[in-house]
Design a protein around this nucleic acid. Structure first.
Length: 197
DNA sequence: CTTTGGATCGTCT
DNA sequence: GACGATCCAAAGG
C-alpha cells in the first residue's frame, strides 16, 4: 500500500502499450484500483477512435504527451478515462475498462450505491470513474505527476506475461481489431466476450 | 441467468 | 439532427 514508484513513461502505439498497463494502479485522493482490463484506441488511423478525423476541442488532450489523462462523457451520463501513449501531437490512447478495488472501498460504495457486490464497483469504464470520482474536470491531467489529482503508479506488480486478448466492446467500426486486453481469469473485469479465438 | 429498452446531452455532421 | 468507447432496471426462462 506504499512504496509506489512512478511509472516509466509508456510511449508507443496504444495497442503495444495497452497490455503493459495491466496491473498498474490508478489512484485518486479517495481511492485506488489495479488495472485489469483495457482497450487501445489508435487515433487518426483507427475509425473507432474519437480522434480518427483529427483534433477537435473535445479530443485535444488525446494529442497531449504520453501519460496524459483523456476523460470524455459517454452517452450523456458517464465519464470514461484514457491514458495517452503516443508522442505529443499524435492521437492515441488506452481506455481503462476495469479495476480491482484496492483502497477507498467505503468511498467507492458511497459513490456507487447501486453496486451490490464489490465486483460491481469498478467493472466498467463508467463505473470505475464514478467509484474514484474521476470526471471531466480531470481531463488533461498529467497522470505521471506525483501531485496530480489522478495518478498512474507502479506498485511492483508486473503485467501478465500472457494477457487475454479480445475484440473491443461497444463500438460499431473496426470491430475486428484485437485491441482489448485483460488479466486472465480476473474476477474484476467487465462483462464482454470471454475469449476472441 | 439473459435479453431488452430507456436515460440523457455534448459533439460533430 | 443523429449518434454514441455505458449503465441499469425490468421482464422473461
Amino acid at each position: 500500500v506504499s512504496a509506489a514508484v512512478e511509472v516509466e513513461v509508456v510511449l508507443g502505439a496504444p495497442e503495444a502499450v495497452a497490455p503493459r498497463l495491466l496491473n498498474l494502479v490508478l489512484e485518486t485522493d479517495t481511492g485506488a484500483g489495479r488495472i485489469v482490463e483495457v482497450e487501445a484506441y489508435g487515433g487518426e488511423r483507427d475509425p473507432a477512435s474519437h480522434a480518427h478525423r483529427g483534433p477537435t476541442p473535445r479530443t485535444a488532450s488525446m494529442f497531449g504527451p504520453p501519460g496524459t489523462l483523456y476523460v470524455y462523457r459517454s452517452y450523456g451520463l458517464h465519464w470514461c478515462a484514457n491514458v495517452t501513449t503516443a508522442p505529443e501531437g499524435v492521437a492515441g490512447a488506452v481506455l481503462i475498462r476495469a479495476l480491482e478495488p484496492l483502497r477507498g472501498l467505503e468511498e467507492m460504495n458511497r459513490r456507487r450505491p447501486r453496486a451490490r457486490r464489490s465486483v460491481e464497483l469498478c467493472s466498467g469504464p463508467g463505473r470505475l470513474c464514478a467509484a474514484l470520482g474521476v470526471s471531466g474536470e480531470h481531463d488533461g491531467t498529467d497522470l505521471l505527476s506525483p501531485g496530480a489529482p489522478v495518478r498512474l503508479v507502479d506498485d511492483g506488480t508486473p503485467p501478465p506475461p500472457r494477457p487475454l486478448v479480445t475484440t473491443r466492446v461497444g463500438i460499431s467500426r473496426a470491430r475486428e481489431l484485437p485491441w482489448r486486453f485483460a488479466v486472465p481469469d480476473s474476477p474484476w473485469v467487465s462483462r464482454g466476450r470471454p475469449v476472441d479465438a
